[in-house]
């Protein structure tokens, strides 16, 4: 079995330490190496954080910063040619999946996204990945290397005890002309909330009749010291709440201690977002709502009566 040479790519710098940790857990043999690769324009402290997480080497790609997928994958193609990795890890973010797919297409590599666990068996990679809209977990095997894997944010491993010392190495990459041009970048409305880190969440769904009723939910959230979450229709269709409140397959995956779902039916695409909540409370007027199958505490009733009562009881 040849040693693993694992490249962790900083497409999303905040995820790089976790990619390095997972890389170290997969390449746990002393002959294995984990190399953090910083894309052009990534802040300098990313190198220290990658080291602290256990990277053996840090390579900083030197080229004009770009978000063009062709420019970024071309730089990574060069990394693959020069570093000859056995495995390339990126975050399973929107950009991360795009890079993973494009790079895999350029070099004809095996690829998977939404990866939640990773191990080796003999020389093969075995991975768990979200499947069926997050409703299920698929276990997949990859024999051919190198492979490109996009790890779902939150996927991590313990930090190895020793962080190998050493400076970051600069690597100049040959510039290629971009295929796309960024015209404008707009911050999204809201965007401040990091609901994936919240300890308690009160999520509201289409059971809410109108936007003007939101204070009802906000009051309950306040009483519980919780953040307000929502289902897709409230953010994407109605626009009553910004995207940072949106929980589910196409929104955020949350891991709170307490999850209170109010007027939420519990569609599979919503469940994937709240599956790892510790305690789930559901309030719904329909006793057959699928959310109840996911609940620890079920309250069948009209939210317009239940929620004010909950707010009162939890405020005192």
């Amino acid at each position: 079995m040849s040693p693993e040479r694992i490249v962790a790519v900083s497409e999303e710098p905040a995820l790089l330490p976790d990619l390095v940790r997972v890389g170290r857990s997969v390449g746990a043999d002393p002959s294995d190496r984990v190399v953090a690769v910083l894309l052009p324009g990534v802040p300098g402290d990313a190198a220290d954080r990658a080291r602290a997480a256990g990277a053996h080497e840090v390579h900083r790609l030197v080229a004009p910063a770009s978000t063009d997928p062709h420019v970024l994958t071309s730089a990574l193609e060069e990394v693959v040619r020069t570093l000859a990795p056995t495995l390339i890890l990126v975050g399973s973010t929107k950009r991360g999946r795009e890079l993973a797919g494009r790079l895999a297409g350029r070099l004809d590599l095996p690829a998977a996204s939404g990866v939640t666990a990773l191990r080796t068996e003999g020389g093969a990679l075995l991975l768990d990945r979200e499947a069926l809209s997050g409703n299920a977990v698929a276990t997949e095997r990859i024999e051919r290397r190198p492979a490109v894997l996009a790890l779902l944010p939150g996927t991590t491993a313990p930090s190895p005890s020793v962080a190998p010392p050493g400076p970051a190495e600069d690597r100049t990459v040959a510039p290629v002309p971009p295929l796309t041009e960024t015209v404008e970048v707009r911050a999204k409305a809201g965007g401040q909330l990091e609901i994936e880190k919240a300890d308690r969440i009160v999520t509201i769904g289409r059971g809410l009749r109108k936007k003007e009723d939101l204070p009802l939910i906000e009051a309950l959230a306040r009483a519980l010291g919780a953040e307000v979450g929502c289902t897709r229709p409230l953010a994407a269709d109605a626009g009553w709440l910004s995207d940072d409140h949106w929980i589910g397959l196409t929104g955020h995956r949350v891991h709170p201690k307490l999850y209170v779902a109010v007027g939420v039916s519990g569609a599979v695409q919503h469940q994937v977002g709240m599956r790892s909540a510790q305690v789930v409370v559901a309030v719904n007027k329909d006793p057959n709502a699928p959310i109840f199958a996911q609940a620890d505490y079920r309250i069948v009733g009209d939210l317009y009566q239940i929620v004010p009562a909950l707010t009162k009881v939890f405020s005192t």
Binding site: P69, H70, R97, R102, G105, R106, A111, G114, G134, T180
Partner: peptide, 24 residues
């Protein structure tokens, strides 16, 4: 896709063809 939801096919195809892509 509704079942797989991997998000790789479009960028992968563009990579194969060596043409531009814009995701999401």
């Amino acid at each position: 896709s509704t079942d797989h939801f991997g998000g790789l096919v479009g960028p992968r195809m563009a990579g194969e063809l060596g043409i531009a892509e814009v995701a999401s």
